[in-house]
């Protein structure tokens, strides 16, 4: 990714951007986020198949935003997140430049976010075969089996909120779980509180989640919490048509159609 390093250097030298967000070599053969503010540091930037963290998480963070205009190394899921964030007025052309990396690992620079949108719309959001199989397996269970499955899966969760921290869409300054009057979600690790927290997370991400799996990758216990959001994504497709993040679109859950179809209301 020499061209990425070169371009980052140029951008910083000409002060076109103040910070370039990318990946660097971390410890134990892992990569981590890097914030380049000086042109000479741009050589630390890397990109390879290990770079799966969703960097869009950082563009809504105060401490990064306050540096000035940002440039971000963006893979396809990151670009999707950015478009969704743009539709929620969290980023715009004045504070973000996208250095896109295509699925073929080519660097493309976008002039503005609507170009990113056009690019992103070439690809459909597809749930991978392994997870699809898992979704079908759970759907085929009886209600009692599903209950047991999720209570068992979620019971080790100790609410470290790594899933929330890793998610680019969870940018609220105060999350519902941070409130204690009323205390919606019990704080200790308890099956019911855990279930409520994950239901809440999935509902808040309905129609916004772009299926990047950052939450699952961040989970220290590898709980398949991404299945909940994947299921919501499938339901959005079934009930409200295909889902693609778009800058101009209203958030799916804060809009409606008078002829939305359901079959359970008497």
């Amino acid at each position: 990714m020499d061209d990425l390093r070169k371009r980052a250097k140029e951008l910083l030298e000409t002060s076109a951007v103040k910070v370039v967000i990318g990946y660097e070599q971390g410890t134990a053969n892992k990569t981590r986020a890097l914030f380049v503010e000086k042109a000479e540091d741009a050589d630390c930037l890397i990109f390879d198949s290990r770079c799966v963290q969703n960097l869009a998480t950082y563009v809504t963070k105060r401490e990064v935003k306050d540096k000035g205009k940002m440039a971000i190394t963006a893979t396809l899921p990151v670009m999707r997140s950015i478009i969704q964030l743009a539709s929620e007025f969290q980023v715009n052309d004045n504070n973000l430049l996208v250095l896109g990396i295509t699925p073929e690992s080519k660097l493309v620079e976008f002039k503005n976010l609507s170009e990113v949108e056009t690019f992103v719309h070439q690809y459909q959001i597809e749930i991978d075969a392994k997870n699809k199989e898992m979704l079908d397996k759970i759907a085929k269970m009886t209600q009692a089996e599903r209950w047991k499955f999720w209570i068992d899966e979620l019971s080790p969760c100790f609410k470290c909120y790594a899933c929330r921290a890793a998610c680019p869409m969870c940018y609220c300054h105060r999350c519902t779980v941070d409130f204690n009057q009323p205390q919606w979600i019990p704080v200790p690790s308890h099956e019911l509180g855990n279930l409520e927290w994950h239901i809440m997370r999935a509902i808040h991400l309905t129609g916004r989640c772009i299926d990047c799996d950052a939450c699952y990758n961040a989970c220290p216990l590898a709980i398949p919490i991404n299945l909940l959001t994947k299921r919501m994504l499938e339901d959005v497709k079934i009930n409200f048509g295909s889902y693609q993040p778009s800058i101009k679109a209203d958030h799916l859950m804060s809009t409606y159609k008078p002829d939305d179809k359901e079959n359970f209301i008497q």
Binding site: W147, K148, I199, A202, R231, M232
Partner: peptide, 9 residues
């Protein structure tokens, strides 16, 4: 739908 998926009756 989410309730159904998580096994709530």
């Amino acid at each position: 739908s989410l309730c159904d998926f998580t096994g709530i009756d």
